[in-house]
Nucleic acid binder design. Sequence first.
DNA 1: ATTATATATATCATTCTGATATATATACGC
DNA 2: GCGTATATATATCAGAATGATATATATAAT
Lengths: 186, 186
Amino acid sequence: MQKETLCLGLLSLGPRSGYEIKQMFEGPLSDFYSLSFGTIYPTLNNLQADKYVSCKQHSQSKKPDKKVYTITKKGMELMKDNLLSDASSYIRSGNFGDQIKSEFFLLLLFSKYLPKETMDTVLNERVLYLRQKLEQFKYDGPVPGNLDAIRNEKSVSFIRGLASSLIETGLNYMEKNRHLLKEKTK
Amino acid sequence: MQKETLCLGLLSLGPRSGYEIKQMFEGPLSDFYSLSFGTIYPTLNNLQADKYVSCKQHSQSKKPDKKVYTITKKGMELMKDNLLSDASSYIRSGNFGDQIKSEFFLLLLFSKYLPKETMDTVLNERVLYLRQKLEQFKYDGPVPGNLDAIRNEKSVSFIRGLASSLIETGLNYMEKNRHLLKEKTK
DNA sequence: ATTATATATATCATTCTGATATATATACGC
DNA sequence: GCGTATATATATCAGAATGATATATATAAT
C-alpha cells in the first residue's frame, strides 16, 4: 500500500498532525505496519499540494507550529480508489504473506553459536515483551484522545482478538518447548 | 543483524552461491527475514575481499559462472563475534518486537471502505495461503539439497513448531470470527 | 540543578528493495 | 516443432524508506 493511501486512511479517522500520525504507528499499529518521520512529513506536504488534505496551523509560541491536516473530499475519493486497486492487486499478486524482519528468529536460528545464558536471556526478554504486548491488546480502558479513533474502528476489535490469540499461542509454545533449544551440539 | 553476519551464518551451514542464498530467503526463511539480490551479491563480494569467505568459480559454458562461497576461519570468528554483540544489543535495546509490514492488516483496518465481496476474497485467499504455509511447515519429507542444511538445524524444529501453532491459531480465529467484519457501518 | 522525555517539523546520507539487463537451458502446451 | 514460461546465475542502479540529526522549548524526574 502506498504511503499516501495509508496517511489518507489514518486522516479519514479524524484530523491529525504528522507527529500524531507517527504516534499511531508507535502504538498497537506498530505490530502491523510503520512509517518514519522522513516518510510521513514529505507525504503530508505532497498531499496538501495536491489538495487531498487541507492544513490548519496552530501557532504555539516558540514551539514549531502544529500543522493539523484534514482529509478533503478529493482525498477521500483518492483513498477509496487506491484502496480498491490495492486490494485487487493484492489478490492478483498471489503474495498473501507479510513482510517480516525478525531479529529474534535470526538469533534463534543461529542460537548454536551463542552461549546458552545469552540465548536464555533473549528468550526471557521476549517472553516478558510478549506478555506486555498481550496486556496492551487486551486492555479495554481509556486511551489517549489521539489513539481513540483507531481504537473504536470495528475492524480493530477483530484485529485485537487475532493478535491476542496469536501472542497467547506463542507464549504457550515457548514455555512448553524452550527446553528443546538447550540440547546443544557441543 | 547486519547483512554480513546473516550471509556468514547461512554460509556456516555449508558452501553456497548467491543465488542459492536467495533461494533460502524464498523458502521457509522468508517468513522471518529476507534479503534481495541487490544486497546479497555486493555483500558476498565485500566478504570475499576481506577474506571472510573464499570463492570457487564453477564454469558453466555460456551461463554465468556459478560462484560458490565457503566461509573461512576468519569468517566464522567474525560471525560468532557479531552474533554475540547482536544478541547483547538486542537485549540492551529493549525492543523485542519484529519489524512487520502487513498489507493484509492494512486492508483489514480499512475494510469499511471496501466492497464486502472484495474483503471476502481477500480473507479467502489469505486463508488458502495460510493453509498452504501450514502444510509447508509441517511437511517432513525430503527437500532440495539446497535447503537441506537449514532444515536439519536443531533450532529449526523449534521454529517450525512455533510457526505451525501460530498459523493454526490464526486460521481458527479467522474462521470463527470473520463474520464480525461483515457488520458494516452503512 | 541537571538530565531525560515529550512536543513538533524538517532534512538528508546511507541503506535496501525491486526492476532491469544479460545469457542460456529446459519444460510445457498445442 | 514452435513459441512461451520458468529456472539458473550474476550484476547494477534508480527510486524509496529508514534512522539519525538539527532545531527549539516545556515539563517531569532525580
